[in-house]
Design a protein around this nucleic acid. Structure first.
Lengths: 341, 341
DNA sequence: CTTGGCACTTGTGCTCGGCGAGTGCTAACC
DNA sequence: GGTTAGCACTCGCCGAGCACAAGTGCCAAG
């Protein structure tokens, strides 16, 4: 009973089950994959695989399905990550080239990933923590309202609306902005909290209340760089995938909308030597994401840097090969684009 | 057989059916709503309602369910739009006051609407077509990349990345931005296409290629104000609502993600005298949104102005009273906030 | 116009038996 | 020792049959 054939059987079971969604039996196995042995032999192998906890039988007289550990072994040792096809590469180029701004490009990326994998795709906004203040602009919108706009070195533009206690002159406000910019330029999130007192000394006394508000918005902007946000696409795939989850789709949609659970998962995941992180079924502890797996990879301008990730979320019985390939390709592609900036 | 009682019966049928999701029979009707007549009488009324096409019986011996026309009558003549409860108003205040910027506030709004109605909430981004250019900033990001940031009078900040044909000096680039700003300030979408030739004359000849790129990004930004985008929340409610749609949830999610269908619907909908637009089931022609209704209302700083809408999407058998109340309240609230700007 | 009575229709839930797919085991085979 | 054929056994699935409950339509009386 050779070790290599047992792995071959496991691989075949995973592949068939992913495709048909039905427990796979010994006969079907020898027919579909031309193994050169008889069903009885396969049954022996399957018995051992079951003893090792890699596959399981839902009912006494049904075929076998992979367990979480089975998928794990498959992902770690059997599956190969293949490069994208030419058509897929072209799709990347085409879709990303008509992306207007920073955010639009990320959105296109995640959409494309969802299409490639037929899965829910998620993307963590890049961390801004080491982004520096590039420019600051204070604009008066109405008598009591002003807009604080901060442009970060990463190219991200953030804004905050502030409500002024009393009307101020537009030019004076602008001047405050310029003064503060001089002091604040090149600060990053690590500079929070800002030395408010010192900063206020640079502006005329009557503008200090307004200036304080501006400084606080800047702080809030710098801090927001630490908090991640997630963009998502392809939720329809949850339902389309043939009722894979059945009625359990509700909690999953909720968890995805909530973002918190997912963010924690993404940050906790560690990549293997291939640059891919895979979390299978119960390997995580979240009841709301039962029966779901996550395939993710880091991306970003600096290699292995800030730990922003993108990936896909799907049923444990998902096509790991395709997902892993697509996720890794998108991560690399996106990293390359971001490095050009 | 009084006319008013027939309407009363229709209302009772709609209310019961919305709540129980099951066809409602004559006996249950007299019990739950204390109508002072016998089931037989109700049966006569129901027979006539059925003749008028307002209700239907799914099977010979089942209760009745409202037809689309039944819902229509209910919405138009029977239902009353009640103001929000105090708790709901407080939720609005609380949730919206910790919204950082413009976009975050819209996002909070749509989330809140989804929570209030237990439905999918959608919100059309406000039209920027009459927004004017408030500020223009050109920043160099790397040797070949620059960022064009435009701040509009509406408080929205848009950005575009441009790739320069050849490296340019940072200060020169900044100067170009300032020059163009002088000429472009207060232009709005109606100014597209911009007089590129004239504009380029204001900058030094060697900077004209770069300036042309900047002008084109500005055009693109102004034009993007015409294209609507939609933000959405509460898709989990689609599934949670007790499998209301059954397996048909897939196409609906797709249609919602696609946004195109929904945008068309929203723009085509016309408000009634209450300031609400309701589209019920087959009243629209989209196969993908079969069995779904939309309740929407316009919002925006100027009253009846640009026609941006917000609303909810749900099964035809939804709680119209609650939805209509919540949608109208949110529209008014949001309009008030936006008017303050 | 309302009401009670009654025959009729029909979806639903339940049990039961046959069928098919698949297994585990044993004994023979190479 | 690994492989194979044969065979008894186990269940899940499916369709038929049946009783039941809910609800209707209609009629005749109040």
């Amino acid at each position: 009973m050779s070790e290599t054939r047992r792995l071959q059987v496991l691989r075949a079971i995973v592949e068939d089950f992913v495709q048909t969604r039905e427990p796979v039996g010994s006969r079907a196995l020898v027919e579909r994959h031309n193994l050169e042995v008889s069903p009885a032999t396969i049954r022996n192998d399957m018995a051992q695989l079951e003893a090792e906890g890699l596959i399981a039988a839902p009912h006494t007289s049904a075929g076998r399905i992979p367990t979480d550990q089975g998928y794990r072994l498959f992902v770690d040792r059997i599956s190969d990550v293949r490069p994208l096809s030419r058509a897929e590469r072209r799709a990347m180029d085409v879709l990303l080239e008509n992306a207007d701004d920073h955010d639009a490009m990320l959105e296109q990326t995640v959409r494309l990933l969802a299409m490639l994998t037929n899965q829910v795709a998620v993307l963590q906004h890049p961390q801004q923590s080491q982004a520096r203040i590039r420019h600051l602009e204070v604009l008066q919108m109405s008598a009591h309202r002003a807009l604080v706009v901060v442009i970060l070195s990463s190219g991200k533009v953030e804004q905050r609306m502030i409500t002024l206690p009393e009307p101020v002159d537009e030019d004076a406000l602008h001047t405050v902005g310029m003064r503060l910019l001089v002091s604040l330029a090149n600060r990053s999130a690590s500079a929070v909290p800002l030395p408010v007192e010192d900063l206020l000394e640079t502006v005329s006394p009557d503008m200090r209340p307004a200036a304080a508000l501006v400084v606080h918005s800047v702080e809030s902007i710098l801090e927001s760089g630490r908090v991640d946000r997630i963009i998502m696409a392809g939720t329809a795939n949850l339902a389309r995938s043939g009722g894979d989850f059945g009625p359990a789709i509700g909690p999953i949609l909720e968890a995805l909308e909530e973002q918190v659970v997912l963010l924690r998962l993404l940050t906790e995941m560690r990549e293997d030597q291939r640059g891919l992180a895979v979390l299978i079924g119960r390997e995580h502890q979240d009841d709301s994401l039962l029966e779901t797996s996550v395939v993710a990879a880091e991306y970003g301008p600096r290699h292995g840097g800030e730990g922003a990730k993108l990936g896909v979320v799907g049923p444990t019985r998902m096509d790991y090969t395709t997902s892993m390939s697509a996720v890794r390709a998108m991560a690399r592609y996106l990293s390359r684009i971001l490095s050009d900036d």
